[in-house]
Structure formats: structure tokens, C-alpha cells
Design a protein around this nucleic acid. Sequence first.
RNA 1: GAGCUCGUAGCUCAGUAGGUAGAGCAACGCCCUUUUAAGGCGUGGGUCCUGGGUUCGAAUCCCAGCGAGCUCACCA
Length: 576
Amino acid sequence: MEGHGSYSQAYRVGQGAGILPFWAFAQSSEGHTVFDSEFERNLFELRRTKLAEIEKLGQAAYPNQFPASHTVPEVREKWSAVSAEELDANRVTVAVAGRIMAIRAQGKAGFATLQQGGQRLQIYVRMDAVGEQGFALYKLLDLGDHIGVTGYLFRTRTGELTVHVERLTFLSKAMLSLPEKYHGLADVELRYRQRYVDLFTNLDSREVFVKRAKVLKAVRQFFDERGYLEVETPMMQQIAGGAAARPFRTHHNALDQDLFLRIAPELYLKRLVVGGLDRVYEINRNFRNEGVSTQHNPEFTMLEFYQAYANYHDLMQITEELMEFVARAVNGTPVTEFYGHTIDLSRWQRLSMREAIRQYWPEEAGPKPALTAFESAEVLRARLHAAIGSLEKAAGLTTQITPERLSELKTIREAVTAVYYDSMKDAPLGKSIYNLFEAVAEPFLIQPTIIYDYPVEVSPLSKAKPDDPAHVERFEFFAGGFELGNAFSELNDPVEQHKRFEQQLSERDRGDDEAHQMDEDYVRALAYGLPPTGGEGIGIDRLTMLLTGSKSIRDVILFPLMRKESTSKDKEPEIS
RNA sequence: GAGCUCGUAGCUCAGUAGGUAGAGCAACGCCCUUUUAAGGCGUGGGUCCUGGGUUCGAAUCCCAGCGAGCUCACCA
């Protein structure tokens, strides 16, 4: 199996490798160890001698299994409502395993709390019940150890459901000390880098990822029930298409060929619709070589789905149904709390992009653009110029404006100014409109909103509106102030598609390195005939953020990308 | 890429007229057979992120670097 390769790799001691063989931990002098301190080194040594003592008691240091009768959550579910009297009358024996998260010894007895599956169960160990050997083992246990216990359920004086242990089985030792038990692991950086610690010390964090799994499951259920086929398309592509973004580059040695990590699966999924897979969806990673922020991780999970014979009106309907369905599956309600906002994913508003600009136009920017302003670059530019002036004037009236609003206005003014200057540099009108929308409206789209009818210039893969060639049948939808997804009636005219790609190439020449590349094979696929098709992409990470009340995308990604951790040893001269 | 803030014991945090560091948890020893942020007595643990500088003296002031968070830019 392929696994062997990575196994030996993980156990090689290499420069800068964070993974070390077990025996390296024992090296107490300098050299490569994961310990920065005497404290951890000493603790590790101490725990090793404890492990040896545990073995002397007849227990395996690293046994291979424990036959539990119940999980901790199962015990809690089954007996949390059962009274002390009933438990005494009908004695229930259970075997459960878990990690010790609290331990309190009291002479010849003691309590400990086992954690498993995100839930906790108290155990009570007394010498006269487990014997001297058993109690000797108990005294060798540390916070973080895994143990299995067999015993009967009872309730303590304070009424807590507890296992009265009759047999104690050692399962695995924590060789390092756990975070502070009351606050847990609070350091954000450590929580991301050492997610394994975060997950068992901060149960809220665990809950986020449980919900994330529910999001994925609900999405699959939704599409499976509607006759979609789940597919997987290439993540290494010769042309990184389907979106506007800078790709990561890589290289295949045997083929001596440069490849891109995909920025979207879109063009492959539509090839599948050409191939007769009328309804397909894919959930997988996209990679974009862009900045990192609370809303952007270089690799992120995207859902894309395509449906033949559907247009963007159908997709709006599906989107609203899907969002409500997923929210209910994850939280039991379409309502989610997101940083002071109550967001109801069963209630959507729909606005055209031009309406949205007018509706969210800040009053400090003067009169909102007339609908006709969106038809002429010159007229729009003049309106922008005036708006910038008004915004500057408003910024001067600091006494009449709250600091928050002032800061918002500053952001808006800077964005509008950027749109204005881009327009001076002959940016296409549609691009200005789109950027203007992002400047004045997007951050304020807290409640679920569909924004439809996008300018053709920013939508190289979408189909034009039959009665309005300047706009395409495309929408994006928003909640919590950020974009969740993007959908459109797919352009299926190969001649038109070829022309759009060429327009993108000229945008590239104008300096836009995120403009789309030419994909001749995709055009050929269209030439075989793509039925009228609607397609949509939804950011799973952002949806999860919304449904878990997480403000940073890193809180919903198990191992977000971090800069390489440098230790003092790394600073010594390197070979390069 | 820019601005702001932060980096002190394994963890959570104190610590400025600049005088070579403290608490709680965790650890170690002893006591305690219904505790639950158990308790009591005692002990150990720190290149104060790194490197320079100012100073008789730097965790503290200055500069540079590294890492992180937030905001912005880019984007989804």
C-alpha cells in the first residue's frame, strides 16, 4: 500500500521536520526534540517512568483495544434521566472509555471525568472496589490519559451520574501537559496550529466541526434526493479556469509539465453536462493564490452543481430551498445568530444589482445614481466624482457622525475612488458597476439577499439576458455581509464563448492577471452541444461560518494555512 | 502588500518614575473513601519571541527581524 511511503517519511528525522520518532523524545540533551523547555522534557521522562510502573501492574502501555459496552454520549442519553433510586434498585453495569479531563484524588478514593465524543462522564474509583493494584494504577493516571472503566452506574450526593468503577484499564498516556483546565487553550495561534489540542479542550470548537460535517451531509442529501450525481473532477489542471483568481502552480515531473491547482471545477462540470450527466455536483477544494483574511483561506471548499434545462430563475428557487434545508439540518431552525444579527435563511430578498446600488447608496454620497447612469460610463463617472466629493465633505462633519459610520464611509469612499480611477483608465462600464456594487452594497447585505443581473463584462461564462445583451442571467447571494455563492445560466454558444475568452485576454493585456485564460478544449466541448444549463457555486466554509456564528474562516477550517513555525534552531545557517 | 495591537512558566494571565520576575491551573512530595474550577501543607519550574542599541542597570525605552490577531487592499 501507498501508506508505507508516508509512514517512513513521517518517522524520518529531517531538518525542520516537526515529526520525530518516538525514541527521539527520550534524548534529554540538546539535539532535535519537540521540547523547548526543561519542563516538558522532564515531564515526558516522568511520564515514561510512570508508564513503566503501569506495565509492572500488569497493564499494557499501549493496548490495542477496549471492548466498551457504551460510548459516553450513549450512557448520558440512556441514563441521564434515571433516578438514583432506580439505579440502585436495578444495577446497570457499563464499560466505557475516554480521556481523563479532570481528576481528583482523595486518599484511598477519587473522582475523575472521562471525555468521549464531546461529552463527559464522571467516574468514582475507590480502593475497596478496584483493589490495591487497581488503585495503584489510578494513582499513576494523569490528566489527558485514556482509560477504560467497567463498573455500575450510580448518582453521587450531588446527583451526578457516575460510574462506580470495579475494573480500571489503562489505554494510553498523555506525555505532555494539558492546557489550563478552566480556560482551555485560548491562544488563537496555538488553537490553529495544534488543533488536536483545541478539539478536546474546547468543546465549542469541536461542535463547529461537527456542524460542518452536517452541512456537507445535508448538501449531499439535498442533491442526491433531486437526482444529482456526485462527481470528482481534476484538481490539477492545465488551464486554471472557471473563476477570476490567481492560481497555484505546480509541476509534474514524469510528464515534465506545469500544472495549476484548480481555482474552480466549473469548466469540467459543464463538460460532464455536455457528456449527458444532466445533474451533477461536486464538493471539494479550490485553491486560490490570493491574500488571507477572515473570509479567505488559500484552500477552501466549494460546492458546485449544474442542472440541464434549468436557468437562473430555477437556481434562485433551489438556492433558497437549499439554504433553508441545510440550516434546519444543522441547527434545527433556519434562524442563525451571527455577531449580533439574527439571520433567517428562510426569508430572502431579491434585488437586481442596479437596484441594490441605489437601495444601499449612502445618503452621505449625495443623490443616488439614476437608472440611466448605468448605461453610460461617462455619466456614471461623473456621478462617482460627485459622490466622492460629497463623501469627503461628510467626513469633515465628524461631530455629526458616529466613529463607526465615519470608518464605514472612509472605506466606501476609498472603494468608490478606486472605481472612479479604474473607470478613468477605461475600465469597462460593467466592471465599474460591479465594483461599485461591492463598494456600497455588499458589506450591508446582512439578511439573505439574492443580487441578480450582472454586467456581461464581469461574467465571461454566463448567458446574456435575451432582451438585454449588456447583462447576463447571473446572481450571487449574500448573508452576514459576505458572498455565499454565485450562479448563472451557463453560456452554451461556443462562438460567443470564444469571443468572451478573447475579451478576457484583452483584460489580461490591460493588466488584470485574474482575467480568464483561453480554454480551447472547453469551447470544443460546447461545440458538441451543451443543453441550456444552470450552474452554481457555494462556499461551504462561509456557509459553515454563518451557521456556526464564526467570524473567521479559520475557525471553520480544521488546519488553516499558517506561516511556517520557526524555532530558534531554524535560525541557524541553512544549506541554501 | 499596508496600518494598528500583541508575544512573560506547559496553559491562563499579572508585572512601567528602567533596579536581573509573580499568581492560579498543571507538575512533584505528604494528608484526605461522594468530589466536581475539591481542599490543606510543602517543593520545583523562566534564553521575559529573536537580534541589536540606549543605560551603571532593560520584561519595561529605541531599532530591526520572526510569529499571531484585527482592520484594509486583492479575492470567494
